[in-house]
């Protein structure tokens, strides 16, 4: 099975708004789900710096992402 790609922007505006909490969330995922996802970091995702933290999951952009939201996004798409 091909892995779904999770891209987290770690550029300074996203970092300031909590991108590190998203990476931490990914790192602590249970392996059943983590194995289906490949993490990549980005310096900037489509210049949407005002709406950080920005992520791209399975080719879709999400803004203002919190760990709680990330959890929902991932779980919905990896079932």
């Amino acid at each position: 099975m091909t892995k779904k790609i999770l891209e987290i922007c770690i550029g300074t505006p996203c970092y300031l708004m909590g991108a590190s909490e998203l990476i931490e969330y990914y790192n602590n995922l249970e392996s059943r789900i983590k194995d289906k996802i490949e993490l990549r970091t980005s310096h900037c995702l489509e210049d949407k710096c005002e709406k950080g933290p920005v992520i791209k999951f399975d080719d879709k952009l999400y803004f203002d992402v919190t760990p709680e939201r990330l959890s929902k996004i991932i779980r919905k798409k990896t079932q």
């Binding site: 550029g11 300074t12 970092y15 310096h43």
Partner: peptide, 17 residues
């Protein structure tokens, strides 16, 4: 550090780049 990173962001500098 929090304030300085906000300041750098205000200058529109992305440290990662």
């Amino acid at each position: 550090f929090e304030e300085l990173i906000a300041l750098i962001t205000g200058f529109e500098i992305n440290l990662e780049k």
